[in-house]
């Protein structure tokens, strides 16, 4: 291969370039991580230290802020509420999106392109437009301040997202597999559950991750549709900000805890982040 003849020359002039790259990346990552570090730093300090002295790292390391959140029901129920509607939303979205994505990836039918476009417009629709009507809709059917209301409201953008991402993965599976299975006498449901779903398992995992994330980060709808019983952690945090005295340490700790679920799985989905955000294209 031409690589053999190339390598010495390449190395000769590439070495300083790599250093330049490393500097750029180092600066960029520093820019990304400094604010996050600062949040972490705050969460490990006492409020006296935060307000009375300016320190680059916690001198008086404390986990009291985390203890407050994990023991005070008004804080930890926020996490439980968020988890509850996020998981419900994930299950609902995946269940309805799987067959639909299969249909879009395999068949043409009347209005398929329009429907696919219409789904996209819902992914793009501003939640602010839907906040008031959702509030009235779910109040009138008696679902206001329940987890399922938020889960259903988030379906507005999560179901289209799931359909688009899953379709992107499913079109990569050769159609011959379907045909062989049907010839072998599989019924559609048996084929879909036994053969097809395992084939797109990584796609389902990535989709689940993005469903989780977009529901987890959303504030406007979840805050509008809840008051006490299903109040999400995001709303708990913004309401604390509104109060007269702000407990910065606890607020920072709450922020750190909301980052953890995403950070835990980030390594496994690192190669699919771009694909997920680009709705399964790329």
């Amino acid at each position: 291969m031409s690589d053999l003849t190339n390598t010495p020359a390449k190395r000769g002039f590439a070495l300083p370039k790599i250093k330049g790259n490393a500097v750029v990346m180092g600066l960029y990552l520093l820019f990304l991580l400094l604010p996050i570090y600062w949040l972490l730093n705050m969460s490990l300090k006492t409020n006296t230290e935060i307000l009375n002295s300016f320190t680059l790292w916690p001198r008086d390391l404390t986990f009291a802020n985390y203890v407050t959140i994990l023991t005070d029901p008004s804080w930890y129920t926020g996490y439980l509420n968020s988890m509850a509607y996020v998981l419900m939303n994930m299950v609902i979205s995946l269940l309805v999106a799987l067959p639909a994505a299969y249909a879009f990836s395999r068949y043409t039918f009347l209005g398929d392109k329009h429907l696919f476009f219409w789904l996209l417009t819902n992914r793009m629709a501003p939640p602010a437009v839907f906040a008031l009507p959702f509030f009235q809709l779910y109040s009138s059917v008696g679902l206001f301040d329940t987890h399922i209301a938020v889960a259903l409201a988030h379906c507005l953008f999560n179901v289209p997202l799931a359909v688009w991402i899953l379709e992107g993965f499913m079109r990569g599976v050769p159609k011959e597999i379907d045909e062989t299975a049907y010839i072998d006498g599989y019924s559609f449901s048996r084929f879909f559950i036994r053969i097809f779903t395992p084939l797109v398992a990584s796609g389902i995992g990535v989709t689940a991750f993005f469903l989780f994330m977009f529901s987890w980060v959303e504030l406007l709808l979840s805050r509008t549709l809840t008051s006490v019983n299903a109040k999400p952690i995001a709303a708990t945090m913004t309401r604390t900000v509104g109060a007269a005295g702000i407990d910065w340490g606890v607020l920072a700790a709450a922020g750190v805890l909301t980052i953890i679920p995403g950070a835990l799985v980030i390594y496994f989905v690192r190669n699919y982040i771009a694909k997920g955000f680009a709705l399964g294209r790329v």
Binding site: Y28, L29, L32, L33, I36, L39, M213, W216, V217, E218, L219, A234, M237, T238, G255, T258, I259, G262, A263, I266, V269, R270, I273, F277
Partner: peptide, 11 residues
């Protein structure tokens, strides 16, 4: 680099 993308918007 993915980290900021996954932080809840209010955070």
């Amino acid at each position: 680099m993915s980290l900021p993308l996954l932080i809840p918007w209010n955070v």
